[in-house]
Structures are given as structure tokens and as C-alpha cells.
Design a protein around this nucleic acid. Structure first.
Lengths: 199, 199
DNA sequence: CCCTTTTCACCTAGGTGGTAAGAT
DNA sequence: ATCTTACCACCTAGGTGAAAAGGG
């Protein structure tokens, strides 16, 4: 079983309509996708990875006057469907379960020619992150058991719209309030209410 | 075979008598111990690690007037003989050989009660870093082959004296001139001659 | 008009030796 | 006297959204 970390924060973003910045150089996600894993075989090897699937076949635009996302037509041509392996992969179940697994090295880009292994997404499109656990099968013909050695997890509250600049100002405000790296844009209270516990 | 990186810099320090700071919280080495590895089995698993052995059974003090290290008696009681595994261990030979292997997470401490897995050394004592390659033997009774699955490398130019504060001012100057993190203490030329290539 | 790119000040996070005070 | 500790200003390295400029 897998538990999503910072679930309350994800839900707060999701309620407003989460946006994630994509840049040419690659931008991290915030909130960071982090999970707590239980029930692995401590001594077996696993690889952990993520990918992103389109939530629909549409392109969106943001109507500022009504503060709402509108369908703006059919989706652009699909981007190369990349996968991000957690850099500690492969590792023993015991190591994965020891602490929260954080995908903070994952970056999103809109550069179709990206050469850094980042996840390529279309801006103004909606995506659903997926998390996959692959059991590294020691058997010779392990390919044949690919299905049973593969488990996927989807958390609906992590879906988002890719953007090159934030559209919904309330999303911007929540990012500034909750991401430590954006502290420079906080004006007032600074209530610390969303200070993220380290690692 | 194993090649020591930044060999010229190590030799320049060694000629003056290298000193490495030890602190309660742990201090990195500078220069960083880095090696290029050749001749591994690309598909086999290896663990890479370092340890530190006393160069002699003596305690030293520094005579400022003569700018020389003098023997100050017998060594203090030996510290716990710890080992530092490279954090990427274990990994395939191909991955180790792909690029320079850097032990930049290794830290030296004088705290006998250290709880962070750092290397514990006695200040004012001389040490020789050692580098070890362990072949992860897939055989069941691999312990019996420990000897043949183990290779050690010693570079005499990396030996040093552990200190809590620099003694030889020329060592201080060379550290300031060659360590990017000490750039704040450079006064003049800033010739960039010792700028270290990244990673 | 709508969206993207570039640059920037302002942060987090952590590695430097200097310095002065502390310890033995 | 000799060595150690704690704190500091000053760096490296890199993650933020704002703002202005760029592109179709």
C-alpha cells in the first residue's frame, strides 16, 4: 500500500485547480510528489517511477474575468511519453519503506527537444501523475511476468494543468504561502501554517 | 585500475603537509577524494568505500616559529574504526565507470560519540585515506571469498594531519585559493587557476 | 490577444576560514 | 600554552514568482 504525503495541501490546491509551471530548463513540481510505502518485501529489489497521462483530449484557456478554465479546442499532438525513475532505483524494499520517498528531482518541461530526461508536457493541458512500483524479478524470463511484477497508484488530488505562467491568482498565492523557496514573495502574516517538515 | 583525480592539487597540498579540519558536526575533506575507475565488469555489482588508517603511533604539534610539525608524544587512544560507503553503493560496474566517483558526502569528525556515521579521527594525528572496491559476490557462501572479492588502493599523496584549526598558514592560503566555498577569503588575483571542474 | 521566454531579486540549504571565547 | 568550540560573514548552488520582453 502507498500513502500520499502532504495530502491536505494537495487537496487544498486541487480544490482551486492545481497548476504546475513548465519551463524550457525544467521546473520542479510543488507540492512535491511524496509517498510513504508499506508492505514491500524488505529484501527484494524494487524500482520506483512516475509518469503523467493526459486527463482528456482537450486544450484549455483561462478566463480571467470569470476565474474559470474553459475548453479551447482539441489537444495538441501528444508529447513524448517519458518516465521518471526515482534516482535511488533500484533499491531494497527495506530502504524504500524506511522513510518517505520524495520525487523532488523530477522536473517538468515544455521543450520537445529536451535532452535532460525531464518529463515533457503540453502547456494548457491537464495531466494525472501516476506512481509505479516495479518488482525486480530475479528470474531469467522475468519479462513474461511483467504484469504481476508491476503495481500502479493514482491519486486524483494530484492532477493539474500545465502552464508556463500561473493563471489563477489564488493558486499563485497558495504556492507563495506554502513553498519555502517562494518566501521572498510573502508580504504579511507568514503564519508558518504550511511549513513543510524536512525530507 | 583506479586513477586519483586532482592529483596535481593533492601533490601541491602534500608538499606543504596537508591538513584536514575535523569538527563536532563533521567537515568535508578538501581536496575531495575522487577517482576514475577502469576495468570493472560492467554488469557486476560493486560497493565502493573508504577508511582511514593512522600513519604512525604518534601525536603531533606544530611549531609556528619553525613552521614544522614535531612529535608530541604517543598517539591518543584509537578512534572507532569506521568506514564510509559511497552512497551510490551498491551499483553496477558500468555506472561506477561512467564518470568520476566523488566522495563528497564523506565527513570527518573528532566527536567520539558521533551519531551521524561520520569518520572519527584524532586531531593532531596523521592519517592515510584508503579506497576499497568490493565485488558483490552472487554466490551463497560469498564470505569465504572475501579476500579475492576485495581490492584496496592507497594514494600516498592524500595523507594528512587532522586538525581542529589550521596550523600551517600556507595550507590555509592554498585552501582559500583552491576551494570555491572559501572564495570569500580571497583578496587579490583570484586567478581561477584552481577552479575545480564540476562533479 | 494569448501565451512563452528571459532575467532578476529574494529565498533555502549548506560549505568556507576567521575570530573570540572556552577548555584543559 | 595549546588546542577546541561556537558563531559569523561570505561564499556556492539552485529553487521561487514577478516583470518585462518576445512571438505568433
Amino acid at each position: 500500500t502507498v500513502q500520499l504525503e502532504m495530502k491536505a495541501l494537495w487537496e487544498e490546491f486541487n480544490q482551486l485547480g492545481t497548476e504546475m509551471i513548465v519551463t524550457k530548463a525544467g521546473r520542479r513540481m510543488f507540492p512535491t510528489f511524496q509517498v510513504k510505502i508499506l508492505g514491500m518485501d524488505s529484501r527484494a529489489d524494487y524500482a520506483l517511477l512516475m509518469d503523467f497521462v493526459p486527463l482528456d483530449d482537450k486544450r484549455y484557456r483561462y478566463a480571467f474575468h470569470s476565474s474559470a478554465w474553459l475548453v479551447a479546442g482539441r489537444a495538441d499532438p501528444a508529447t513524448p511519453g517519458r518516465v521518471h525513475f526515482h534516482p535511488d532505483s533500484p533499491a531494497k524494499g527495506a530502504q524504500w519503506m524506511r522513510q518517505i520517498v520524495s520525487f523532488d528531482k523530477l522536473k517538468l518541461t515544455n521543450n520537445l527537444q529536451d535532452d535532460n530526461g525531464h518529463i515533457i508536457l503540453n502547456s494548457m493541458h491537464r495531466y494525472q501523475p501516476r506512481f509505479h512500483v516495479v518488482f525486480v524479478d530475479p528470474r531469467r524470463d522475468s519479462e513474461r511476468y511483467a504484469q504481476e511484477n508491476f503495481k500502479s497508484f493514482v491519486f486524483a488530488e494530484t492532477q493539474f494543468t500545465a502552464v508556463t505562467a500561473y493563471q489563477n491568482h489564488r493558486i499563485t498565492q497558495l504556492k507563495i504561502a506554502s513553498n519555502p523557496f517562494a518566501k521572498g514573495f510573502r508580504e504579511s502574516g507568514d503564519s508558518d501554517s504550511w511549513t513543510v517538515s524536512p525530507r
